[in-house]
Amino acid sequence: MADTLLVEEIPEKPVSGFVDFAKRFVRNRAALIGFIITVILVIVAVFAPVIAPYDPYDANMPMSLTKPTAQHWLGCDELGRDILSRIIYGARISLRVGVEAVALALSVGIVLGALAGYFGGRLDLIIMRLMDIMLAFPSILLAIAFMAVLGRGIENAIIAIGIVSIPEYARIVRGSVLSVKENDYVTAARAIGNSDAAIIFRHILPNVMAPIVVRATLGISSAILDTAALGFLGLGVSPPTAEWGTMLGAGRGYVWDAPHLLTFPGLAITVTVLAFNLMGDGLRDALDPHLR
């Protein structure tokens, strides 16, 4: 083999994929802002007991419906509870439901989508028609139905919102698997003697991660919106738990007398959803192979 000379040169220090990705992400100002807001939200949620100025469940009737003051920056609600503290504690609920619901939907969606895409045929038909049926219902309506069956509570909200978002992930995963499995390295993996499971988990799934990560980030924001919607309808977490949607629902009777009861939780939802959407868009731009 000595007669086959190697003349091609290899760069000494290759640029790692992650550094490349991070550079592109940071260059996108909107995505960076979204990322920073998200980090702040996570810090606020984790350290809520330290940061919150008051106990969010401490009713103080004389302060009922107080407008924002120096003591209560965002005012007090109908029971005299400090709204800022409640919003800070609400971040815990929203982020938890968002992340866990997406995790649930992702794990089921990846498995279903990968099975449908990889094996195709009748299995694909059955799985995807099932997903189509779920997609035919407005997701919030389906979530309401699940909540009605499961009862209120944060775990049930996670399950309901998780289940209704399975089809989105299953579809994305299936589509990506369909295109990736045409690559020769998948055929090579089979020729080597890998089992189907090894081919799916070692060779296909790592190569479909980019679109899934993007979709999951955007999915967190829609899960947060859904949680708020359930809370507003009185179907989410049970009161008196501080949750943004529930706060909106409770405050809607005072919209003329004390608009701050609605304004601030509403703003919290908007900013959070916006942050995740900006971050998701930034991730898509940074991970999109077509721009490379």
């Binding site: 690559n183 020769d184 390295y185 055929t187 090579a188 003697g193 890998n194 790592p206 190569n207």
Partner: peptide, 19 residues
């Protein structure tokens, strides 16, 4: 699968044949 070690393949497209 166990017989596959006796028969191997080299592909046309070196860009799509490596993970």
């Amino acid at each position: 699968r166990s017989l596959r070690k006796d028969i191997q393949i080299i592909f046309q497209d070196p860009y799509s044949s490596l993970n």
